[in-house]
Simulated assay, not measured.
Amino acid sequence: MKIRCVIIDDEPFARKLLLDYCSRVPQLSVLGDFSNGLDALSFLNHNQADLIFLDIKMPGISGIDLLKTLGNRPKVIFTTAFAEYAIDGFELDAIDYLLKPFDFPRFLKAVNKAFTSFPIEKPAISLNNSPQEDFLFVKDGRDLVKVKLNDILYIKGQKDYVMFITKNRKIMSLMNMRDLEQDLIQKAFVRIHQSYIINTQHIELVASDKVRLNNEYLPVSQTYRLTFREFLEKHK
């Protein structure tokens, strides 16, 4: 399933940038882009959008006023150069507030917030459930990289990013550790630390406070120790 989105901004460069950013996220489908709120309002009254990238200060009708007029209100990410409108934006339950100029990582962070509010697959990965070969697609910059689950040794969280470590490569992606944990819990993966999710198929040794995978030791924190032990007992 794709998120149907609409771009509304009176600045041509801003619309072009958002179109480019949206094109890099396979789960986003742009229904249209508009240079003013009145044209967008007419479109939205006859077409169902899931998400709007909405400028606030525009001629004719502001983004705030446009949003207030919509009956079946889509999710919204405000995009503006004026920080003083942030409070008004969040009072309308905006997903996020992108202050211009913003780069692609900041855009992607806002999009990930939007995706968590929809009952669909997470935007950063697509998990194949085929019993023959489980894999996921991981977004690496502009590319989607196919990674076989069996090849993953462990996953390391680093703030808003995670790093997938295999025997042959490392892939950094803008993702959430909690979402990954939920997606992979049925695939022999388990979380052992705030910063680590491991593939239990590669465990070589288990000690009281650490595990060894591919001759590398990783810590098992007190918080996850009981859950880890229960996981091992269940999968003996």
Rank of each mutant, 00 (worst) to 15 (best):
C5P: 05
C5T: 13
C5Y: 08
I8M: 06
D10F: 08
E11W: 00
P12K: 12
R15T: 14
L17Y: 01
S23I: 10
V25A: 09
Q27A: 14
V30L: 10
V30M: 05
L31Y: 08
F34G: 09
A40D: 05
L41D: 00
F43G: 08
N47A: 09
Q48S: 13
A49Y: 13
A49V: 10
L51P: 07
L51R: 05
K57G: 02
P59T: 05
G60D: 03
I64E: 05
D65G: 02
L66P: 08
L66C: 11
T69L: 14
P74K: 08
K75F: 07
F82I: 04
I87D: 11
D88E: 15
A94P: 07
I95Q: 01
I95D: 07
I95C: 01
Y97M: 09
L98R: 04
L98P: 05
L99E: 09
K100H: 10
F104Q: 02
R106I: 15
F107I: 07
L108F: 14
K109S: 14
A110Y: 08
N112S: 13
K113E: 12
K113F: 10
K113Q: 14
F115K: 03
T116S: 15
P119V: 06
P119I: 02
A124N: 15
A124Q: 10
I125L: 14
L127D: 01
N128Q: 09
N128G: 08
N129R: 12
N129G: 05
E133L: 14
D134N: 13
L136V: 03
V138E: 00
V138M: 08
V138K: 00
V138D: 00
V138N: 00
D140N: 13
D140T: 04
D140R: 06
R142Q: 12
L144D: 00
K148W: 06
K148N: 11
L149G: 06
L153T: 02
I155V: 10
F164Y: 10
I165M: 04
K167N: 07
K170N: 01
K170L: 01
I171Q: 07
M172Q: 10
S173R: 09
M175I: 03
M177R: 03
L184K: 03
F189P: 07
V190S: 11
I192C: 08
I192S: 05
S195T: 07
I197S: 09
I198V: 15
N199D: 04
Q201T: 04
H202S: 05
I203T: 01
E204A: 12
A207R: 13
D209W: 02
D209P: 00
R212A: 13
N214C: 03
N215Y: 09
V220S: 10
R225Y: 09
T227W: 00
F228V: 10
R229C: 06
F231Y: 15
F231L: 05
E233Y: 12
K234I: 01
